[in-house]
Design a binder for these strands. Structure first.
Length: 484
RNA sequence: GGGGGUGUAGCUCAGUCGGUAGAGCAACGGCCUUUUAAGCCGUAGGUCCUGGGUUCGAGUCCCAGCGCCCUCACCA
């Protein structure tokens, strides 16, 4: 049936509801209890007891068998059936006959059971709270078209309960992270999302414009340089959970805006960050499955502690079969992998080979430690070997999940690293952040810093293989506006 | 940006060799006091993603474009 006709029928019903003296878009409906809670009021040992309840929810099933109507309601807690009978509803029977799938209604009644054994609220009074003009998706399959699911997430959420479940878990896990960090003495802070200089990472930023000041600003690619300013300021333990924006490709692991948790701890180093990371994520996993194993697509990830800690060079040897110090061998391997190595610096070639051969092999949680220093301009070099940086990345299911270092706090080296970076990468951080250097000149305590990609973490915790399934409204290219 | 897939009724999907566009759910009408993805009987519902082309004839074949998904590239 044509879409317009379906809506027209529902609009007509809304009008009939008005004629009966009801507002199809109702008012405050006080004292509602969640459907799961209402359902639990039924006592199987005492089926003759009929506790009263007031409930509300969206109609997901409706069967009209003459002078009896069965309706299944859904809310965020679950589902419950309502039984409506002509005999008991009296005047309101006419209203009941105007209900459609998708409408949001409220009901008062007693919890009982049907002859077939389903717990049911036998309604004595009903009300319409919102008339749905658009018909909902099919009740059995739900909404499966991925494009529609993302563009109209509101429909996806109410028609596919498992989607709600994923986002509830996301919220709970982030709350747990906040609690754990706060309990350990970390202070949650908020630093600028709009920055005059986009620093702290190498990524292309989004540019926006402030009219009154007539200046371009960047959406931040990282909060790092501001959080470190707070270490200078004397906060010893800070963290921020917020959005970063990167103007780059979109994939199952990349959304242009994504949520990052960054924390900094004075007087600590990257070893402390490793312990903290392992502890944080393990606690989340334990709550989901005490066996410490979680499925992820075709994989099963084993989070049993302790997690592997392997050096960058060790892994390169293991998976690429080359010695990091034998640059000829590395370059030969690169050519074998079709990497255009000729114009690249040694370290870049090494990293290309590393990314091509190692990363997707790291399925169970693995800390990769001691990165080549040139890849890490914000990291303190190893005291006994300045070619290596005190940095780790955590890989799970082949995904880069966390990145951490012993923070560089020598302003002179920091400035030099920025200069090298600026010379090599015009495209990224185009301006020296003199104020950050100035902050370091006042003295920043030695510190460990950690970043965890929250969306990717949620992917692992909820067995979602696309980042779009853990972001409520992932970026979609605009289409022509929907009209009535 | 490259490669692969996909787009048909509100939703989920069929559609053979190029020959009148189909089903289920939802809707509408009728019967029914216990339905559990679909009660029974009946009715109605289409920009086959868009624009060209080939053909007597295109949902189907060809070309171009668009959206989405996967993948590669890019990505501290």
């Amino acid at each position: 049936m044509a879409k317009e006709k379906l809506s027209e029928d529902r609009l007509n019903k809304a009008q009939k509801i008005r004629e009966l003296g009801y507002d199809p878009y109702g008012q405050r409906f006080d004292g509602v209890i969640p459907l799961a809670q209402a359902k639990a009021l039924f006592d199987p040992d005492n089926p003759e007891k009929h506790p009263p309840a007031r409930i509300a929810g969206r109609i997901i099933f409706l069967r009209d068998i003459g002078s009896l109507i069965f309706i299944r309601l859904r809310d965020s807690s679950g589902e419950l059936q309502i039984g409506l009978s002509k005999k008991h509803l009296g005047q309101q029977w006419k209203l009941a006959k105007l209900f459609d799938l998708g409408d949001i209604i409220g009901a008062d009644g007693q919890i009982g059971i049907t002859k077939t054994g389903e717990i049911t609220l036998w309604a004595t009074e009903i009300t319409i709270l919102a008339k749905a003009i658009n018909p909902p998706p099919e009740k059995w399959h739900g909404l499966t078209d991925t494009e529609l699911r993302y563009r109209q997430r509101y429909v996806d959420l109410f028609s596919n309960p498992e989607v709600q479940k994923t986002f509830k878990l996301r919220s709970e896990l982030i709350a747990q992270i906040r609690t754990m960090l706060t309990e350990q003495g970390f202070l949650e802070v908020e630093t600028p999302m709009m920055q005059a200089i986009a620093g702290g990472a190498a990524a292309r930023p989004f540019i926006t414009h402030h009219n009154a000041l007539d200046i371009d600003l960047y959406l931040r690619i990282s909060p790092e340089l501001y959080l470190k300013r707070l270490l200078v300021g004397g906060f010893e333990k800070v963290f921020e959970i917020n959005r970063n924006f990167r103007n780059e490709g979109i994939s199952t692991q990349h959304n242009p805006e994504f949520t990052m948790m960054e924390l900094y701890q004075a007087y600590a180093d990257y070893n402390d960050m490793m312990d903290l990371t392992e502890q944080l994520i393990s606690q989340l996993v334990r709550k989901i499955n005490p066996e410490m194993k979680l499925p992820f697509g075709e994989l099963t990830i084993d989070y049993t502690q302790p997690w592997q800690r392997k050096t960058y060079a060790e892994l390169l040897k293991e998976h690429a079969g080359v010695d990091i110090n034998d640059i000829d061998a590395v370059r030969a391997k690169a050519r074998q992998l079709d990497i255009e190595e000729a114009t690249m610096d040694d370290t870049v070639v090494i990293n290309e080979v590393f990314e091509a051969t190692v990363e997707d092999k790291l399925i169970n949680p693995t800390f990769v430690i001691d990165y080549p220093a040139p890849l890490c301009p914000l990291t303190k070099p190893k005291p006994d070997n300045p070619d290596l940086a005190l940095r780790f990345e955590l890989f799970i299911a082949g995904m880069e999940l966390a990145n951490a270092y012993t923070e560089l706090n020598d302003p002179k080296i920091q400035k030099r690293n920025f200069e090298i970076q600026l010379a090599g990468q015009e495209e990224t951080m185009a301006v020296m952040d003199h104020d950050f250097i100035n902050a370091l000149r006042y003295g920043m305590p030695p510190a460990g810093g950690l970043g965890i990609g929250i969306d990717r973490l949620i992917m692992l915790m909820t067995n979602s293989t696309s980042i779009r399934d853990v972001i409520l409204f992932p970026l979609q290219k605009p289409k022509e506006q929907l009209t009535e």
